[in-house]
């Protein structure tokens, strides 16, 4: 059993401590946003925020989340109350297949939390752990800049 705060709510997930946080979130956590891509910290599809810091859920033991705060893409916003990044990604139509977006959105949220006005290089650098095979990179960069402007306004 591992207890932590998941998207603002206290949870206790019934998983062995050594199991990855990704398995815990997609299994008993019931989430679908964090995705499996490689299991070796090379693609970023599993990215979540642990105490606000982007972390690879595929390789992080669930026990490492104990007592901490975990945010996934589901915790950023909802269709009724989207995070400015989610609204911006829709406005820019920043995606094709969308498999990479859950991870990219949380990394972008972490970036904007520390750097509210990132330039293109800062965005590219923050998103470099993430792969996108469809070639939506430029739209994604524009969407992050759009969200930054919205949040500053």
């Amino acid at each position: 059993m591992v207890a932590f705060t998941l998207n603002g709510a206290a949870v206790a997930l019934d998983v062995p401590e050594e199991v990855s946080l990704l398995h815990a979130l997609r299994g008993p956590g019931g989430l679908s946003g964090p995705r499996f891509g490689c299991g070796t910290e090379q693609c970023g599809t599993c990215m979540v925020l642990v105490d606000g810091k982007p972390s690879y859920a595929c390789s992080l033991p669930a026990s490492a989340a104990a007592g901490r705060s975990v945010t996934t893409v589901e915790g950023l916003g909802t269709p009724e109350a989207p995070h400015p990044l989610q609204a911006a990604f829709l406005a820019e139509q920043a995606g094709q297949c969308g498999y990479c977006l859950s991870g990219i959105l949380v990394s972008a949220a972490a970036l904007l939390a520390t750097n509210p006005d990132p330039d293109e290089d800062a965005i590219r650098s923050a998103l470099d752990p993430h792969l996108c095979r469809c070639g939506s990179h430029n739209r994604i960069i524009r969407a992050v800049r759009r969200a930054a402007k919205e949040m500053a306004a």
Binding site: L31, S32, G77, Q86, L90, Q93, G95, G98, Y99, L101
Partner: peptide, 15 residues
């Protein structure tokens, strides 16, 4: 706007 994209930015179970 793409009909499938909202599910994908909110992490819905679509795949």
């Amino acid at each position: 706007a793409r009909v499938d994209l909202p599910d994908k930015v909110f992490g819905a179970a679509r795949f």
